Every structure is written in structure tokens, then in C-alpha cells.
Amino acid sequence: CHSECLGNCSQPDDPTKCVACRNFYLDGRCVETCPPPYYHFQDWRCVNFSFCQDLHHKCKNSRRQGCHQYVIHNNKCIPECPSGYTMNSSNLLCTPCLGPCPKVCHLLEGEKTIDSVTSAQELRGCTVINGSLIINIRGGNNLAAELEANLGLIEEISGYLKIRRSYALVSLSFFRKLRLIRGETLEIGNYSFYALDNQNLRQLWDWSKHNLTITQGKLFFHYNPKLCLSEIHKMEEVSGTKGRQERNDIALKTNGDQASCENELLKFSYIRTSFDKILLRWEPYWPPDFRDLLGFMLFYKEAPYQNVTEFDGQDACGSNSWTVVDIDPPLRSNDPKSQNHPGWLMRGLKPWTQYAIFVKTLVTFSDERRTYGAKSDIIYVQTDATNPSVPLDPISVSNSSSQIILKWKPPSDPNGNITHYLVFWERQAEDSELFELDYCLKGLKLPSRTWSPPFESEDSQKHNQSEYEDSAGECCSCPKTDSQILKELEESSFRKTFEDYLHNVVFVPRKT
């Protein structure tokens, strides 16, 4: 048989008469490798580009789960590009990614509803959504962080984005990388972005840091009482949809009607710091009717980097990364020049730590249904340095008659930039024990000054392991946590139920 035959053949030295091919099969003959313009397919066939392209389009058009959109890589027609490569849609070739590779997620039936953290986790790592997304989240724990972890990498949506009755959302900033909504599939009414009845939605994105392009379709905003109209108009300008909307697409009466839409800028007039305090004062603000001013709200939190936005980490279910302080308005003076500047002394802060701070007014709604208010920009203030805590785990070892090696770990709280350490030492008198000992005694162990690591005695271990207080009263049991108490109650309830079950099964009433 021919060298490319495997198993047997019907005619000697003829690659077209093989029972099976050793390498690849091409047009009725066995070959060692697939010549151009053919590609290896499933490690035994040679196919042309049209064959591989037909497989790709067949799966793409069917949208069946589990099928493969075949691509070409290293002269092979394979189910998908290997790690580190992405497909070129024009020629199906796998090309190296520039940075992290995109991950295209194809949605069944063309859309997916995100109504819980669990459903959001199914899209973790996706960068391109081939379909439409509907966000409908009523509640949950730590929602802002969970949504950002699972949806934060999405850069492109081919269909539309719909935010509907998501009472738990305060902001859409968890879509931190969303840059493009194509609108290839539109919501009824030709809408590519749809926001309806979101009672706590206050911000779409921080438009000073976020760009969003909507290729096709219109915007729809109705019944978002805490979303200011200025935020919607800003989205029109940034996304390129200005002029597409009709009169009733953006409701003037049901958007922002319960919001404090600040239209003035508060400026800080005085800032002073110490290692654990920050004193702030800002310019006074009074609405047209000074009785509408209820006070100020001061927001602050630790910020290692200057990239904080107002609604980071917030949701309507209680999660809030900001510390909020309510401040009463100052006494009002008739003389504008003698107006008191409101302020606040922030206490209990960490030394040498940068804080993000902003302040906003708290006002009631005027009778004319106009909203007044003022808010400052987010500023960054760093507390002063102070003395560091003591170095940890000092170790001293003498390696000769004239040297001592000293080692330690950095302090747990540096409280500033540590530039150097101060080492103090003092000579001590020799131990009298060394002169009084009889060095001729056998088995004498000389006193040693070398360091030995501390260890816990058996008594201390027994005390720590004991669940009861000892007789001397030195140790006591740790208080039980809520989960331990709940577990004990469940076990007790189970024992009672099981005992009742045994009584009912074992003891049967005697027939009379």
C-alpha cells in the first residue's frame, strides 16, 4: 500500500485506493498535508475557505447554543480562536489581540433580562453583547459592586439597553466600559436606550469621564423622579442622539420631579488639616426662599486615587461607600458681607490618608415646582503625618564578641513616609551569675543571650482551647457569634421535631 494509506488498500502504491488515510483526505486521495488554498479540518480532512465560511455563517444565523462559528488559524479551520487571539470578521482569520481579548457573548432569543446578581454573573467577562440587555433589578445585597464585577467589562451592545423598574439602582456607572450601543435591534418605538419607572436612579454616568455613542435609535425617559433633566440632556449631547427624540420621548413632568437638581456650584473657602482632623468651610448658599434650606450634607471617604465619582458603590438597598454628615444651616444675616460661612470639623480620621470630599445642599421643593440647590466639586484632601507606631517583631542576635545583629519589621501604621529608623542602645553591667558559677561542674549549661522565638506554653494553649472559665478566673470563653447562636437554635429545633416524629412513629394507638 501507499505510504499515506492506513489499515489496508485495494490497489498497491495508489493513494486513492486506501481504506483510511494516515494524515489527511483531499478529493478522494490521501495526502501528507493540505496544500494551499485548503485548510486542515478536524485533523483528517482538507477543506477550502468557502466550506469553513459556510459553517461560520450557519452557526451565526441559527443562534443555536453550542454550535461553533468556525475560524481560520495556522492553516486550520477550527471552532474558535485560541487564547490571546480574536477573529477578523472580513476573512475569519485569528489575529493577536492588542491588550485583553474581546469576548463576544451571543444571547438566546436576542435579549437577556438581568433581574438578579445570579443572572448578571452569566455575563461575567463579556466585552461584546450580541443582542439586547434588559435591566430589571428590584433589590439585593452589595448590588453596585456585584454588577460592576460582572457587567463592568461590557464595551458594546449590538441591540438596545433597557432599564425598567430597577428600584435598587442609583447610577449606571457599573457599566464602566460601555462605549457603544449599535441599535441594530430596537425596542418598540425605535428606541435604543429605554429608561422607565426607576424610582431611585439619580445618575446615568459621570459624563466628564465617560463617552457613549448610540449609532441608531432614540432615547426614552419616563417616570424617573430623581433623575434630573440636565442629566438626560447631557446624554443626548454626548451620545449623538440630540435631535432624534420626539416631543413625548422625554417626559418633562415625570423626570426629576422629586430630585434636588443642583444648578449652582458650592466653593470651599477654608481648608485646614491635622493628622486626624480636617476643618472645612464653604461659601454660604440661600435659595430664593431661605426657609427652603434644610441644611447641608457632607460626604467623605478614603480615596487612594483621584478618580472618585459621587455615586460609586451606591445602591438604593443601603450600600453606600460614603460617610454622610448632616449639618444645620448657619444663622442668616441681613448683611451679605457678614454672612457666616458654614463648615464642619471632621474628626477621627487616619493620618497621612487622602480623602475625597464634597458637600451639597438639602432643600425642600418650592411652590413653583422649581428645584434649587448647590453642590461642590469633589475635592481631595490629605491629612498630615504623625509619629508612626512601633516597629514590629524586633530580633537581636550576637554573632561574635563585638557585634549584635538587630532586625525588625516595619510598623503596622507608618502614618507617613518613613525615611529612617533611630536605634538606641545602652551598655549593661555583666551578670554576677557568670562569676559565681563553678565551671568545672559536669552538665553545666552556660547562660545564653542568643534570641529564641517566643512560644506559647501548654497552660496558655489549654486556656485558649477551654470553653469555660478556669477556677483562677484568668480566662473566659469568647462570646458566641450570631451565626453560632442561630445554628444552635436550628439544631435544637431539629432535635425537638425529630423526637416528636419518633414518638408518633414508635407509639401507635392500640386498636379498641
Rank of each mutant, 00 (worst) to 15 (best):
F175G: 01
C261P: 01
Y194H: 13
D377L: 03
F296A: 08
G295I: 13
M235V: 05
V390D: 04
E122R: 15
N200A: 12
N399V: 13
T118H: 13
Y191S: 14
E302R: 15
F193G: 01
D292G: 03
V325P: 00
Q258R: 05
L161S: 01
K177Y: 13
T383Y: 00
W344M: 03
R347E: 08
R138A: 15
Q258G: 01
L349N: 01
N248W: 08
G373P: 03
S389M: 13
C228I: 03
T113H: 14
L229Y: 13
E184W: 07
V104P: 09
I357G: 04
E237M: 14
K360Q: 15
W322Y: 11
S398L: 02
S333A: 06
D289E: 02
P287S: 05
E237R: 02
I214H: 06
L298S: 02
G139A: 13
T241D: 10
F193A: 03
S338D: 15
G125A: 13
S400H: 10
K360F: 04
K337W: 14
C105Q: 00
T127E: 01
E109V: 15
L201M: 02
T127Y: 07
N334V: 06
K301I: 08
P330K: 14
Y285L: 03
F193Y: 05
S400C: 05
D292Y: 05
Q203R: 13
L133S: 00
S274I: 08
L172N: 02
P288Y: 15
N211Y: 11
L196D: 03
L153D: 10
I154H: 00
L161V: 09
L178P: 00
G183R: 02
W344A: 15
L147C: 03
E237A: 05
S166V: 05
Q203H: 06
T113P: 09
H341S: 10
Q339K: 12
N340E: 14
G217E: 01
L143V: 08
L108G: 11
T185L: 14
S319Y: 09
R179K: 10
V363T: 05
T254G: 08
P411N: 00
E368Y: 07
R179Q: 14
A144T: 05
L229R: 04
S171A: 06
T241S: 08
N320C: 11
G295M: 13
A259Y: 02
G295F: 12
L345P: 13
I278T: 08
S319F: 07
Q245M: 15
L172R: 00
G343F: 08
D312M: 12
I214F: 11
N248K: 06
E246K: 11
Q216G: 03
N334A: 07
N307A: 07
S132H: 01
C317D: 01
N130Y: 04
Q258P: 02
R202L: 11
L186V: 05
W282A: 14
P411F: 00
V397K: 15
R164M: 06
Y305T: 11
D393G: 06
T213G: 08
E283P: 07
D115Q: 03
V324H: 11
N248G: 04
S366H: 15
I250D: 12
S402W: 09
K103S: 10
A195T: 04
N399I: 05
Q258A: 09
G125S: 09
I129M: 05
F174Q: 02
L204N: 07
G313I: 08
Q258D: 04
W352T: 02
L153Q: 08
I379F: 08
Q216N: 05
T323V: 15
G131F: 03
D206E: 07
M235P: 00
I378S: 03
D335L: 09
C228A: 05
E111R: 15
W322I: 05
G295Q: 12
P287L: 06
F268V: 07
P394K: 04
A251W: 14
E237C: 11
R332L: 10
G313P: 05
M235K: 00
N334F: 07
T323A: 07
F296M: 15
Y380A: 05
Y223Q: 07
N211A: 13
D335A: 15
R138T: 01
V325I: 15
N307L: 11
V238W: 15
S166D: 15
D377M: 13
W282I: 04
A145I: 04
R138E: 06
K242P: 10
N198K: 00
L107H: 14
I379P: 00
D249A: 07
K360L: 11
E262P: 15
K277G: 11
A303F: 14
W352L: 07
S401D: 08
T254P: 09
N387H: 13
L266A: 05
E231D: 15
L107T: 10
K242E: 15
T361D: 02
L252I: 12
L252A: 11
L227R: 00
S260M: 08
T371K: 03
T213S: 10
M346L: 11
K360H: 04
S116D: 01
L180Y: 12
L147D: 02
D367Y: 12
V381P: 06
H341C: 06
L345F: 13
Y194M: 12
N211G: 14
D326N: 03
T127Q: 06
L298W: 02
Q339P: 10
N190G: 11
A144L: 05
R138H: 03
Q216R: 06
S260V: 07
T386M: 10
Q306T: 11
L108A: 08
W352G: 11
Q203V: 06
F268A: 05
G159K: 02
I404M: 06
K103G: 12
T361W: 04
T273C: 15
A120L: 09
S321V: 14
K242W: 14
S338F: 13
E155N: 12
I232V: 05
I181T: 01
L172T: 09
G313A: 07
P304V: 04
C228Y: 03
L362R: 15
K301Y: 03
N190H: 07
E283S: 09
S402D: 07
E146V: 03
Y160L: 15
V117Y: 06
S239K: 08
D115T: 12
E156D: 05
D257I: 14
P330F: 15
D315R: 04
A251Q: 15
F174P: 12
W207P: 05
V359T: 09
K112Q: 11
I157S: 00
T185H: 13
H106V: 14
H106P: 10
V325S: 14
K360D: 02
S376D: 00
Q216P: 05
T353M: 02
Q354E: 08
T215C: 09
N263C: 05
L298V: 03
P336T: 05
G313S: 12
L293R: 03
V359I: 15
R291Q: 01
N141E: 11
Y160N: 10
T254R: 06
L180S: 08
F296P: 01
L227T: 08
F296V: 13
E155P: 00
H106Q: 13
Q314P: 02
F221M: 14
Q403P: 00
S376F: 00
T241H: 11
T185M: 06
L196C: 02
N190V: 06
A316F: 13
K253V: 12
L294T: 06
Y270S: 07
T254V: 06
D326G: 03
V128K: 05
L406F: 15
K103N: 03
L212P: 04
L252H: 11
D328G: 06
S338M: 12
Q245E: 13
D312Q: 04
N141W: 10
D197T: 08
D206C: 07
E122K: 04
